[in-house]
């Protein structure tokens, strides 16, 4: 059974946001990584890029296919998880620990449109 973590915000497209102050760490959920299989590459934006809620900002790739990453929030990318460049399989090991981008949230009200852990978990069943 895929795990979820309380206190995070979840999108229908299986990304999560972990909010710390004005920043959000965005990654894919444990359910998403389990569906993808072995992640072999993560296509990430660069620091300073702007991401927009509901729009694609990169891709997570298994051997077989590329799966678009849809940003659940808007704002400036202040950090990318560089560890994923050399070890994309970290996402399979722990998807919640290994976030993909850190965003300076430009509109925290966007979080209201996302699901809590229990709602997201139910949606995956």
């Amino acid at each position: 059974m895929a795990k979820v973590i309380e206190g995070l915000y979840y999108a229908e497209s299986h990304e999560y946001v972990k909010v710390e102050g004005d920043f959000g760490y965005v990654g894919i959920t444990d359910y998403a990584q389990s569906q993808l299989g072995n992640v072999v590459y993560v296509d990430m934006p660069e620091e300073g890029d702007e991401v927009t809620a509901g729009e694609e900002f990169g891709a997570v790739e298994s051997v077989k296919a590329a799966s678009d990453l849809i940003s659940p929030v808007s704002g400036e990318v202040v950090e990318v998880n560089e560890a994923l460049e050399d070890e994309p399989e970290l996402i399979n090991k722990d998807a919640f620990e290994n976030w993909i981008i850190k965003v300076r949230l430009s509109d925290k009200s966007e979080l209201d449109a996302l699901m809590d852990a229990a709602t997201y978990e139910a949606s995956c069943e």
């Binding site: 299989g37 072995n38 072999v40 298994s62 051997v63 077989k64």
Partner: peptide, 11 residues
């Protein structure tokens, strides 16, 4: 069958 365990292991 696309894979049983994972593609890389089978490859």
């Amino acid at each position: 069958p696309l894979y049983y365990s994972d593609i890389t292991t089978e490859h």
